[in-house]
Design a protein around this nucleic acid. Structure first.
Length: 313
DNA sequence: GGCCAGGTTCGCT
DNA sequence: AGCGAACATGGC
């Protein structure tokens, strides 16, 4: 599977806290597709290229256990694999698979809620999959602003295919999510040619330049409170309340993010508790108070349910 | 065929 | 402060 002659490899097994459903979590992350952006899923193996500076590592994860006795085998392969990279990949994959945040406190709260209990049972073991880094999460969210989910996917795949570093391993081609430098190198015209709007192209290049010049140090924001984090994120051009809330959920590992401005979220909540009539942002926010401080989980679970078939259980 | 889909900024009134 | 335009495609 991996060409061992030209690569260094490393294997380890992680044991997430149960319940952990590998397939539901990966499926949710990838919309149950074989390929989604820089994520690949084939024959039970979830693959991704992770980048740190100039290093590129192929990471492959597969389930060895069950939902209640979870075990995940992680295989790394790269031309050169330092201890630093091994640790980086291990930490990153743990977040990507949502293994670092327990669902149990959320279940205790949600199972008391009659409207939510069936969804919890249907998606038992689903965790919150996170982007490997804040940059990828931000770019993905900016691409998804305003336009339909389908178009967002199209733009994302085009961006990854065109700008992302790629490697071929054992006859299989893998593409990594573009790094800030890749976006800057591509330039405005290239982004426009991918059908990104003038605004989105500007946002992405601006964001990448700030990251490269150390003007903006996203990972340092980890220490901020939710309120301060929202404040910090929305002070940048192209990041509004919707994007900032999704960052809490998808990038910063916060348990109580709630993108109340999201049209799909409002629709799903309307189906859940308002006879199918979409809630307004203020109503959604008011209703959500009963799920504090676990609204990132609520958001993930209601999207999982809503994507399948409305909210029909 | 028209309208709406997983927002946000900016430049007009 | 309040409004409309901007990226493309598919489903109803």
């Amino acid at each position: 599977m991996i060409d061992k002659q030209h690569t260094m490899t490393h294997t380890h097994i992680v044991y997430p806290e149960p319940p952990f459903d590998f397939f539901k979590t990966v499926g949710f992350s990838m919309y149950h597709k074989r390929r989604y952006g820089g994520e690949f899923f084939k024959e039970g193996i979830y693959s991704r290229l992770l980048t740190l500076k100039d290093n590129i590592v192929l990471v492959q994860a597969r389930s060895l256990g069950t939902v209640n006795k979870p075990a995940v085998r992680i295989d790394l392969a790269a031309p050169k694999l330092s201890e630093e990279m091994k640790i980086f990949c291990q930490c990153t994959m743990s977040r990507v698979l949502g293994g670092d945040r327990s669902v149990i406190p959320f279940y205790e709260l949600a199972l008391q809620d009659k409207s939510l209990a069936p969804i919890i049972r249907s998606f038992y073991g689903l965790r919150i999959p996170q982007a490997p880094n804040v940059f990828e999460a931000l770019v993905t969210s900016i691409l998804g602003q305003q336009i339909s989910n389908q178009i967002a996917k199209l733009l994302r795949t085009r961006l990854v295919d065109t700008l992302g570093p790629s490697v071929e391993i054992a006859g299989e081609n893998y593409v990594a999510f573009p790094r800030p430098q890749d976006v800057v190198d591509a330039g405005f015209e290239t982004l426009r040619k991918l059908s990104l709007s003038t605004r989105k192209s500007e946002y992405l290049i601006d964001l990448s330049n700030r990251l490269l010049s150390d003007d903006l140090q996203l990972e340092k924001m980890q220490n901020l409170s939710n309120t301060d984090l929202i404040q910090a994120l929305t002070s940048f051009r192209g990041i509004g309340p919707w994007t900032a809330q999704w960052m809490l959920v998808r990038a910063f590992g916060r348990c109580d993010g709630f993108p109340f401005g999201d049209l799909a979220l409002q629709r799903f909540m309307g189906q859940l508790i308002n006879q199918g009539i979409r809630l307004g942002p203020k109503e959604a926010l008011a209703v959500s108070e009963r799920w504090i401080p676990y609204r990132s989980y609520f958001t993930t679970y209601i999207f999982a349910a809503g994507r399948v078939d409305g909210l029909k259980q």
